[in-house]
Amino acid sequence: MTRDARELSDAALRHLQSTIDLPDAGPRFSVQSLIGQGGMGRVYAVHDRLLDRDVALKVLSLEAETADLAQRLAREARVLARLEHPGIAAIHDAGTLADGRPYYLMRLVRGASLVDPTLLGARGERLRLFLRVCDAVAFAHARGVVHRDLKPGNVMVGEYGDVVVLDWGIAKVFGPPSGEVSAMPSPVVASGRKAAEPEFDTADGVTVGTPGFMAPEQTAGNPVDARADVYGLGALLRHMLNGSADARATIPPPLSAIVNRAMSVEPAARYQRVDDLASDVRRWLDDESVSAYRETIVERSRRVYQRNRVLVLLLAAYVVVRVTILLWRGV
């Protein structure tokens, strides 16, 4: 077949442009669609013909391919491999495509990111989703991994309400490769023993992360630990409560205090562990006092009343009856 290539139509041009970067995934996988892209790579939904299931394939973009980024993708695959948790997309395989680009395969998460929190329903539901994000991040910390880029776009809520933390491409990893709980240089985990050196890291002074969700020490290019993720979770919580990364007018004071403590400029002033942050959120959900907020007597009374309304009413009724009886007898 011959063709005057000058006749390439606009439609053919667009198609070819999108085709160039398609991963050469071999005969086992058929590429379905592009589902995400970032500075480092692209994520495609692909169908695994052998196992008859859809999975996600992350591959370095052609234009982004450098030895450094290839190494970062490989790191991300290794990070995911040590994080087997329902809140973290499981990795299935990793390697190099026929076109020379590194890739890895992972669980395909169908759903929506937290970019638009208005999709998430009532405040209680959002907080319970947030707690599941905390669970995943706390697990990663226990495995010696700091995410460093927690933000709404990196949290997916699946079709069945499952929460998955994505994009571990700039995660910082401490300690042994897998299987063992590592030494995390946060005051809690590292207490009583020497903190491990990071296994993977960016160069000194290099800033990675997302403005608005990045801890100040991370923005400054200084060393970070698990408390950088506490800051990111605080920013995420604020976003989930407000639908905006900045406004906070509608947040109840205890929740606002939780956000403020998580986002303290000084790491030492933050929650020292994700579990502490999650615990405060859980306490607020259970209508209990939170460590980040000192209640007034009125607030405490109101909370106690709301929490024990039936008991209070019964007690009040009992007192009224007793007083009435006493008054009756007195008369």
């Binding site: 999108s18 970067d21 592009l34 995400g36 234009e63």
Partner: peptide, 15 residues
């Protein structure tokens, strides 16, 4: 410049 041009050429929409 190569990477910038490649990005311009390979620019694709997310479906």
């Amino acid at each position: 410049e190569f990477r910038a041009e490649a990005r311009a050429l390979l620019g694709v929409d997310i479906s």
